Amino acid sequence: MQRVNMIMAESPGLITICLLGYLLSAECTVFLDHENANKILNRPKRYNSGKLEEFVQGNLERECMEEKCSFEEAREVFENTERTTEFWKQYVDGDQCESNPCLNGGSCKDDINSYECWCPFGFEGKNCELDVTCNIKNGRCEQFCKNSADNKVVCSCTEGYRLAENQKSCEPAVPFPCGRVSVSQTSKLTRAETVFPDVDYVNSTEAETILDNITQSTQSFNDFTRVVGGEDAKPGQFPWQVVLNGKVDAFCGGSIVNEKWIVTAAHCVETGVKITVVAGEHNIEETEHTEQKRNVIRIIPHHNYNAAINKYNHDIALLELDEPLVLNSYVTPICIADKEYTNIFLKFGSGYVSGWGRVFHKGRSALVLQYLRVPLVDRATCLRSTKFTIYNNMFCAGFHEGGRDSCQGDSGGPHVTEVEGTSFLTGIISWGEECAMKGKYGIYTKVSRYVNWIKEKTKLT
């Protein structure tokens, strides 16, 4: 034993070699072989497995989906700052455009905790909710729209109204504003409101030439003092309507412009014939205590009207009353817009006519005020429907199939267009061939041609 100890002390290297040989010859039971080890760690190889990531292109799944990435790591994937920024906006807080917040056709661009709407022409605001041009839906104005110097929408209202708090709607500024039905039992019968379409306001006024200088022999019209197929109006439903009495009662109609003036057809009036105007009328054979009678003290036909040349060209006249009318729910003026808007309103496509005229061709006159909704007829169809001249200051309205029309005794009465609950004068009943005849239409004086003249002559002093 002493000898062994001496050998170990003198030859430590020998001992180490012996131990190493023993270990190498022993069977290893701690580690699995290569094949079995792979069965336990069965993990798919990654895209760049075996390579240094710093030297390969980034992978979106590896960089940002398996674990949260930084902007720089995302930049490695896209290799483009702009594309990385677009991805980053949604990656950080989701897609803010998912709810489609942009209105009126706006395009949404996502941002971090926010979004941006790219608005089409005519709109602005956070969600493109603000109209900035009158060309689109009248700028959301209830009545009139004008573009300011910086191309912003400025709404306005006709006389007797003021802008509401929203700067879009119009509200009454006087007790009985024009064009409004205020009798409670008839307010439910107000005709369907007309909503502004998209309009090209630059070209809204037709490029028409008034044929002022045409000389033409007097034409022989049949029954051209021209509501057939209409309905009984309720008291106060058309408070701007008046009836004219002269040699015979209810020979023509008219509309209240203001307390002192009536507008009617020029062919209705004769110099030297006494005319009485009755406002607030409903049943011409009954006294309903809503009527107001006034005498006409002055007749002003349009300066281009000449019955000797043509009885229905420039067929418009103004009547001055001896005493002002007292405005109330049964006696209310009709609204008159400017030339541009009167023309736009007419193009809405349908209007209402009213009167006490004959209820059928050569038949009896109506006792109760009649009204009828009539569609506008395109000019080409209008011209083809008659052998008589249709001037540019006239328009056609009615039904091709016949059966409904204005008729004798309705002449001078109103053709009105309702705009968001307020009625505007767009025409004056003038003439036609018979009444409600198939293929024939009622012919009306186009008020847009005469609004400046009306307003100039009827100013209240």
Rank of each mutant, 00 (worst) to 15 (best):
W118S: 14
L60W: 04
D315C: 01
R384P: 08
T290Q: 10
E270Y: 07
F238R: 04
L346P: 02
T186V: 14
A233G: 08
L32P: 04
N213K: 06
C382W: 03
S148E: 10
A307F: 08
L14R: 05
N258Q: 03
I300A: 04
K260D: 03
D33A: 12
D249H: 10
F78Y: 09
G413L: 06
L318Y: 01
C134A: 03
T445Q: 05
D95C: 05
L19K: 02
P44K: 09
T290I: 07
S350V: 12
V92R: 10
I316L: 07
S423K: 10
L211E: 06
K45H: 01
N222C: 05
Y330D: 04
R298V: 03
T287Q: 14
K362F: 05
P44D: 08
A164D: 07
K339S: 15
E323F: 09
E165F: 08
T458R: 02
G403V: 14
T381C: 06
C157D: 01
F87L: 02
R162Q: 09
F399K: 05
H289G: 11
A250Q: 11
Q96M: 13
M65S: 04
F360D: 15
L189N: 15
R162T: 12
I299F: 08
I429E: 13
G94P: 13
E434M: 12
N304W: 09
V30F: 14
L23C: 11
P414I: 15
F176H: 10
I454W: 00
R180A: 05
N113T: 12
G413I: 09
G403F: 11
E323L: 08
G413N: 06
D338R: 04
S365W: 08
L41K: 04
E434C: 10
Q96N: 14
A266K: 03
E10A: 13
V195R: 13
V181P: 14
V4S: 13
R75V: 07
F395M: 01
G246E: 05
S406K: 12
A279F: 02
K274S: 08
T194N: 07
G280P: 02
N48V: 01
N313Y: 10
S25H: 06
E208G: 06
K68Q: 09
F78N: 03
K45D: 00
V416R: 02
K152P: 09
L321C: 02
L321I: 07
S220P: 14
C128W: 03
L20F: 14
T342D: 04
Q370L: 03
G349L: 04
E79Q: 15
R364W: 05
F360Q: 09
K137M: 14
P414K: 01
G432F: 05
S204G: 10
L460G: 06
P235I: 10
P324V: 04
S423C: 08
S184R: 10
W261H: 02
V451T: 06
C97F: 02
F78I: 09
G13C: 14
T215L: 07
M437L: 15
T417K: 01
Y312M: 09
H400D: 12
S430E: 03
L425I: 04
Y330S: 03
N283Q: 09
P120F: 05
L130E: 14
W431Y: 13
S182F: 08
Y391C: 06
E159S: 10
F238M: 11
K45W: 01
N80S: 14
G412T: 11
R83G: 09
E320R: 02
F345I: 08
C108A: 02
G125Q: 03
H314F: 07
N48C: 00
K274R: 13
V331P: 00
Q185A: 07
K387E: 10
S148M: 08
E76Y: 00
A366V: 07
V243G: 04
I334M: 01
H361N: 15
T194H: 13
P197F: 10
H282K: 07
Y161C: 00
D93T: 15
D131N: 14
C102T: 02
I297N: 06
G351D: 01
L19A: 10
V227D: 15
C102D: 01
Q185C: 07
E420M: 14
L189Y: 15
G432C: 10
I275S: 03
K347L: 07
F87D: 03
N166A: 03
T209K: 09
R449M: 15
C145H: 02
T209Q: 13
Y161V: 01
P12F: 15
N42D: 08
T186C: 05
V269T: 07
W431S: 11
N5F: 13
S204V: 15
C157N: 01
S385K: 13
R384D: 08
N59Y: 03
D410R: 14
V174R: 09
P324K: 06
R384I: 07
D232P: 14
V273M: 15
L20I: 10
F55C: 04
N283E: 07
R62F: 00
I136T: 05
I309C: 06
A9W: 14
W356E: 02
F388L: 15
E193N: 11
G50K: 06
S329Q: 08
I443S: 03
C145G: 03
W261M: 02
N104G: 04
C396T: 01
E76A: 01
L41I: 06
